[in-house]
Design a binder for these strands. Structure first.
Length: 456
RNA sequence: GGCCAGGUGGCAGAGUGGUCAUGCAGCGGCCUGCAAAGCCGCGUACGCCGGUUCGAUUCCGACCUUGGCCUCCA
């Protein structure tokens, strides 16, 4: 089954094939670690985690890099404000980021490069850009010269003329062309900085991704991914730098961009202040429902976040886990879990996760009706490719159980069983009400009464 | 203003030139002491106006409208 992926560069879906069929290289723009990430920041990591899972099935090796940007003016501002070295900020939030991503069921990347560990590569890349006439030093800064790269704007569909006309920022006097962007900037003594041929300074925003991508994945990579809001200027600038630094070699063969997560119809963003932290959501809701929610829309479309959407995701998972719970005693066939063809086909079609989830629903139905080991295996196998349905059903249904006194529940259930046996239904219903008040839902079945204490 | 992506049933959200999305919610029935779950069934969805076509939600054009980028941003 071949994979087709939309390429922002060509604006069309193309059959995917890596440069080296034995080794796929993929880079995702990671966070700048100066505070906790919000759920919008997690969409790309979740979506591209599914892509990584899919690619690993198709190719012998996938090298997936997701960077940490740990040098940046916002980090500096936070460090100055708190009177601590920047590493105190970046270490803390990089660790928090890993925890948050793991909480959403995202597998760790193969490589997690840090910008500060690549200053040498960054300086070298800037030197080669200057040597090639693609960059120039001015007043302690080094700037990329967009006029020296005629293809500038190809990714975002802009030309430099219109960029200048529409520029809403004040243009620094040392720029030759207003669209030129900073590769290196000088640091004052209180700011972090590294020695360089242009004095003590620090890298500009875009250069670190170019340097780290080349250092770990090579000069030409297969897939470069990120949020659509990074398409310009970040990715446009990365292309310009990398291409010019590597003698015109293509930088990334596929550019993939996830749509924005919205909240009340507006982009969730720190500057608008309408953010929900992943950390907070993980504490309040079942993590798997959050992941499911992020996969319920096609990755290129906007996706609106809401409490009712979370509730829907939980209900959906309730149904699927109910099937798995009913099949708990059914032994799985030996060997690895199968991957259902229709579900995989949906993912191969430009990562159509909504379609894949529809297929998963069909598989859940089939498993419930047939009660077979094969059905169970297919449901689990399909779920695994999406990073869903891998926990113990019992754990899913009793995830709020920390606050519930299990022994008391069992005692009440036994009492209710006796009342029902004596046909004292008034008493039985009173006990059920009591359990409901405790946040415990019950379900009578041929195998006895089940209970669940699930948080929303 | 420029560039880009959308507007699908109560909600979410795929998809297609001509019988099925899917999930959640709702309604009717079966089952159940009653619930819950399960099972069976139900609801004339494709922004608006033209055009192409035997036939358009799906293709083309105009219009209305929502959002993203053009500044930090996943």
């Amino acid at each position: 089954m071949s994979i087709s992926l939309y390429n922002s560069l060509t604006r069309r879906i193309q059959p995917f094939s890596p440069l080296d069929p034995r080794r796929v290289t993929m880079y995702l723009c990671g966070p700048t670690v100066y505070n906790y990430v919000h759920i919008g920041n997690a969409r790309g990591p979740v979506v591209f985690d599914v892509l990584a899972r899919l690619l690993r099935r198709h190719y012998p090796q996938v090298v997936y890099a997701r960077n940490i940007t740990d040098v940046d003016d916002k980090i500096n501002a936070a460090a100055l404000e708190q009177g601590v070295p920047i590493s105190a900020i970046t270490d803390r939030f990089a660790a928090a980021y890993r925890e948050d991503m793991a909480g959403l069921g995202i597998g760790p990347p193969d490589i997690e490069p840090h910008a500060t560990a690549h200053i040498g590569e960054i300086v070298a890349m800037i030197q080669s850009l200057i040597a090639g006439g693609h960059a120039y030093a001015a007043e302690g800064h080094v700037l990329f010269n967009v006029d020296a790269y005629p293809a500038y704007g190809a990714l975002s569909g802009r030309d430099t003329e219109e960029l200048i006309a529409g520029a809403r920022v004040e243009i620094a006097p040392y720029k030759q062309n207003p669209a030129d962007f900073v590769l290196w900037k000088p640091s004052t003594p209180e700011l972090p900085g590294w020695d360089s041929p242009w004095g003590r300074g620090r890298p500009g925003w875009h250069i670190e991704c170019s340097a780290m991508s080349a250092a770990h994945l090579g000069e030409t990579i297969d897939i470069h991914a990120g949020g659509i809001d990074l398409l310009f200027p970040h990715h446009e600038n990365e292309i310009a730098q990398s291409t010019c630094a590597h003698g015109g070699k293509m930088f990334a063969r596929w550019w993939m961009h996830n749509g924005m997560l919205t909240f009340d119809g507006r982009k969730m963003s720190k500057s608008l202040g309408n953010v929900l932290l992943v950390r907070e959501l993980l504490r309040r809701h079942p993590p798997e429902a959050l992941r499911l929610l992020l996969l319920r829309g096609h990755y290129r479309q906007p996706l609106d976040w809401s409490d009712s959407a979370i509730a829907q995701a939980i209900s959906t998972l309730d149904g699927w886990y109910r099937v798995l719970r009913d099949l708990a005693a059914v032994a799985l066939p030996a060997g690895p879990l199968p991957v259902p063809a229709r579900l995989e086909a949906a993912l191969c079609d430009d990562l159509n996760t909504p379609q894949a989830l529809a297929e998963l629903a069909v598989l859940a139905d089939a498993a419930r009706q047939h009660g077979s080991a094969e059905g169970k295996a297919e449901l689990l196998g399909g779920g695994a490719l999406l990073g869903l349905l891998q926990q113990d059903p019992q754990a899913w249904f009793q995830r709020g159980g920390d606050e519930v006194d299990g022994e008391r529940v069992e005692r009440l259930l036994e009492e209710r069983r006796a009342a029902r046996a004596a046909r004292d239904f008034a008493r039985a219903d009173a006990i059920r009400s009591e359990l409901t008040a405790m946040g415990v839902a019950i379900e009578d079945s041929a195998q006895g009464t089940r209970w669940s204490a699930a948080k929303t």
